[in-house]
Design a binder for these strands. Structure first.
Lengths: 241, 241
DNA sequence: CGGACAATTGATCTACCTCAAAATTGGTGG
DNA sequence: CCACCAATTTTGAGGTAGATCAATTGTCCG
């Protein structure tokens, strides 16, 4: 079932048009599809994976547990992402990869990816770039955690996720799926569940967003962007509209 | 003056022994050396650099300014680091690179680096890995900012910097240069100067560290490590002792 | 229809911030 | 070598964003 790879191809194509040869090599990648239940771990801290994971359906998150048992989430991932691409060069996982919702993922052996990169070095560059964008997002989150107040942080979070969803065609007007629990948002933004809830109410009261039944709706994109100081530069989505 | 490249060679060699051919290609890299005063910017947010910067002497930091004018520092860099390697694949800078102290840096054109990677793909892999470690450090900082208290965060910061200094031979027993202002530490850890100061006093009182005249001394490495929950896994220094 | 989990609300507490001033330190020119 | 200035560090005294604890109220799903 080589079509399993299409989400990845689409992602790469957003960076640069692919040659037929490149597309061909991609289609040859062996992919093993597996499903995971919500809350299960796909890869765990200290593992030494021999394959990467291409997310086909659902949401994933990457996280670490602190000494006191609290959780810090670093990123959420949606279809087309390869959240543990880093394992290609870093032997041991320094964090875990968990399913936020039920997910379908495709596993691709490191060996195959390495051969792919040898044969199509330009694809290697695009994958590298992808991990660099990852890091850029981390920096933006750091700015938020270190220097912004909870409601603003939350607003920025919505801007980011909405923008990423839009880029892969997962939005419907100003709405999109948003299956993230307030507790998980807290773990991502460095806030308690209670405070996430209160900040959320504030954003709602300001008429910036709606969030119910796992659906996010942006009521006023311009105002939300301004409120959050959102500037998509850091997402480095050069081509996208 | 091809020897300018040695700090980089040493860094790469810490990842894997280099072949003569690889070392040869590296020595051919054209490097333009420049000096900057403390507090000056080497590269600025929104720039589109055409070269990377190899730090030869002094300390650099990467940062971003928030809407209210406050600064968030993401990383400090020491000799041998290539702090803006990402500009090879990300056209525009999403943050700035500034000098914490007077610095000497070598600029290497992107073109040359690209050619280097073509000729010695393995070196490309090592450079990629380096940017991945960068990202891993961001994640660790996020864990600190989101989930740890100030003194612990500070202690972890010291563990990290000391470990990195040691890896490049810049330590003297349990002491090392530490030319970072308390204000800058605050900007890095998401704390106010005052609170950095108070946390610092706490660490001193606990007999964990000393810090005076820009020199950091670790009084009790084991206890500091434990206090900070420092586990060097996230630095991915596979070979180092 | 019941049970589990998520969202919401209320009340209290605290880690860290801000403002302001004093004490140190380091660098510079004379 | 000293005196002076500017930048840091340190200390003090409130103030506040956000945490914690503890119910209560949905909501989803088998």
């Amino acid at each position: 079932m080589p079509q399993t790879i299409t989400p990845l191809i689409r992602k790469l194509e957003r960076e640069a048009p692919l040659s037929d040869a490149e597309r061909q090599v991609l289609l040859l990648l062996p992919v093993t599809v597996r499903e995971f239940r919500a809350d299960s771990d796909i890869v765990h801290e200290r593992d030494t994976p021999s394959q990467c994971c291409l997310l086909l359906q659902g949401w994933l998150h990457r996280y670490k547990i602190a000494g006191d048992g609290s959780r810090q989430i670093f990123a959420f991932h949606i279809a087309g992402d390869v959240p543990d691409l880093q394992s290609l060069h870093l032997r041991r996982m320094d964090h875990s990869l968990g399913a936020s919702t039920p997910v379908k993922v495709g596993f691709i052996p490191h060996d195959s990816i390495r051969r792919l990169i040898e044969r199509a070095p330009r694809l290697g560059g695009i994958l590298w770039k992808d991990t660099l964008i990852d890091a850029s997002i981390f920096r933006q989150w750091m700015l938020g955690m270190g220097r912004k107040q909870a409601p603003q942080r939350l607003a920025h979070f919505f801007c980011e996720l909405y923008t990423k969803m839009q880029a892969v065609g997962l939005t419907d007007g100003f709405s999109c799926d948003f299956p993230i629990t307030q507790g998980a948002m807290g773990d991502a933004l460095g806030l308690s569940t209670v405070h996430v809830n209160r900040s959320l109410m504030e954003l709602r009261a300001d008429g910036l967003i709606e969030l119910e039944k796992k659906t996010l709706t942006i009521c006023n994109w311009e105002r939300l962007k301004q409120y959050a100081e959102f500037d998509r530069l850091y997402l480095h989505m050069d081509l996208a509209a």
